Simulated scan of single mutants.
Amino acid sequence: MANAPHGPASYFPTIETKYGRTVDEWFTLLDAAEPTGHTALVTWLKSEHGLGHGHATALVQFHLNPGKWSRI
C-alpha cells in the first residue's frame, strides 16, 4: 500500500462516491466560491453542499495547499 493516498487525498474516493462529484469538480466550485480562507470555505461546503466536516476539510486543505499533498 505504499502508493495509497495519504492526508486529504485519502478521503477523495469516498467524497466522490458519497456526493456524486469528482474531486476536480469540487475544486472548480472552490475556485469560484465567494468565501475565502479555510474556515469560510469549509463552512460553505457544509452549508451549501451538505458535506460532512471531515470531507469539507480534506477538500479545502488540499485546495489551499496543493503542493503539500499528493493525490496518489
Rank of each mutant, 00 (worst) to 15 (best):
M1Y: 07
M1W: 13
A2I: 07
N3K: 14
N3Y: 11
N3H: 13
A4E: 08
P5S: 13
P5V: 03
P5H: 09
H6A: 10
H6I: 12
P8G: 08
P8H: 09
P8I: 05
A9T: 13
S10R: 15
S10H: 07
Y11T: 01
F12P: 01
F12C: 02
F12D: 12
F12Q: 03
P13M: 05
P13T: 09
T14N: 05
T14H: 11
I15R: 06
I15Y: 05
I15T: 07
E16M: 12
T17S: 15
T17R: 15
T17H: 14
K18D: 12
Y19C: 07
Y19N: 09
G20E: 06
G20T: 10
R21L: 15
R21T: 08
T22P: 00
T22S: 15
T22K: 10
V23A: 09
V23E: 13
V23Y: 08
D24Y: 07
D24M: 06
D24N: 15
D24T: 15
E25D: 14
E25L: 09
F27S: 05
T28H: 15
L29G: 03
L29E: 06
L29F: 06
L30N: 07
D31T: 14
A32E: 13
A32S: 09
A33W: 00
A33P: 01
A33L: 00
A33H: 07
A33F: 01
E34P: 00
E34C: 04
E34S: 10
P35A: 02
P35N: 05
T36K: 08
T36F: 05
G37F: 05
G37T: 00
G37W: 04
H38Q: 01
H38N: 06
T39K: 11
T39R: 12
T39M: 11
A40W: 04
A40N: 13
V42E: 06
V42W: 04
V42T: 09
V42H: 03
T43V: 10
T43Q: 14
L45H: 05
L45I: 02
L45G: 09
L45N: 00
L45R: 03
L45T: 01
K46F: 03
K46P: 04
K46R: 15
S47R: 10
S47F: 09
S47I: 07
E48L: 00
E48G: 04
E48A: 04
E48I: 03
E48T: 06
H49T: 02
G50Y: 02
G50H: 00
G50E: 02
L51S: 09
L51H: 01
G52R: 13
G52A: 14
G52P: 02
H53D: 12
G54P: 04
A58V: 04
A58P: 10
L59N: 08
V60N: 00
Q61C: 03
Q61S: 03
Q61E: 04
Q61T: 09
Q61F: 00
F62C: 03
F62D: 04
H63W: 05
H63G: 03
L64N: 00
L64H: 01
L64Q: 02
L64P: 02
N65R: 10
N65I: 00
P66V: 10
P66A: 11
P66I: 06
G67Y: 02
G67F: 08
K68Y: 09
K68F: 08
W69P: 04
W69E: 07
W69D: 12
S70W: 11
R71Y: 05
R71P: 07
I72Y: 07
